[in-house]
Design a protein around this nucleic acid. Structure first.
Lengths: 124, 124
DNA sequence: CTAAAAATGATAACTATTATCATTATTATA
DNA sequence: TATAATAATGATAATAGTTATCATTTTTAG
């Protein structure tokens, strides 16, 4: 038990996430893939994005809206999120200064940086 | 219409958020304040944390768990979130390097930086 | 080929949040 | 100060995103 078995659905979902530059939600992954694979279940998408996250294949993006977005690009980069329309824009600048962002016609109101990992106690 | 009226409840909620160093959720705000103000409604907490965010008095933190956390400290700082226990730790280092974080006994697995603001189109 | 175990699809259950609405509190002004 | 307009509240129903359940199917080790 506990070992991972191959699943065609997981491969399709992984492939979709790794080859899109939008930052899809579970729903949009489901809607898109359902066209090609009508037998796909929403629960399967939920299950697999979760396991893809855990294995580090994709990244979770919690944005302004209530839906969780996924990013198949795990190379370090930052995001700009529009507070009004919710659009997510990849930023590949090493250290995007507010000046640089404004040159891209993005007016930044706030920056949020969070580090994830294991705390003192949980490391033991 | 459209103008903001004083509300005792909003003041209490604001006061609570500005004077706690934990990063409370709506539920924990509600549970705590209900001890002192039993007539407080959960809906009122939801309504007011939302308006406090919009006016820039508090900050939203979307963490690993599904509950949204709020931070009454709007001075720029970053957070460390434990992937295992979910603990949120304030980081006040100007530019916390991985080395510095490790010295705090926090092993960082990932950094997520997001900029919020208005995009090109929505600025118009 | 077979048996054990993991994954799926369908859908019920759960949980966080938002909407609704009658009532109460605030505030401008008569 | 009294009154009228309207914003905020409390209670709770409704909604939406996600997770759990379970019978069935698929994968894989032997």
């Amino acid at each position: 038990m506990e070992r991972v078995k191959y699943s065609y659905q997981r491969e399709v979902i992984k492939d979709y996430l790794l080859n899109t530059k939008t930052h899809p939600t579970v729903e949009s992954i489901y809607e898109n893939l359902k066209k090609r694979y009508p037998e796909l279940s929403l629960a399967t998408v939920y299950r697999n994005v979760k396991s893809l996250c855990e294995e580090g294949t994709v990244i979770v993006l919690k944005t302004g809206d209530k839906k969780v977005h996924y990013d198949g690009n795990v190379n370090y980069h930052t995001h700009f999120i529009c507070n009004k329309c919710g659009k997510i824009i990849d930023l590949f600048l090493e250290e995007p200064s507010l000046d640089e962002l404004n040159k891209l016609n993005l007016s930044v109101e706030r920056q949020i940086t969070t580090y994830y990992g294991l705390c003192d106690k949980c490391k033991k």
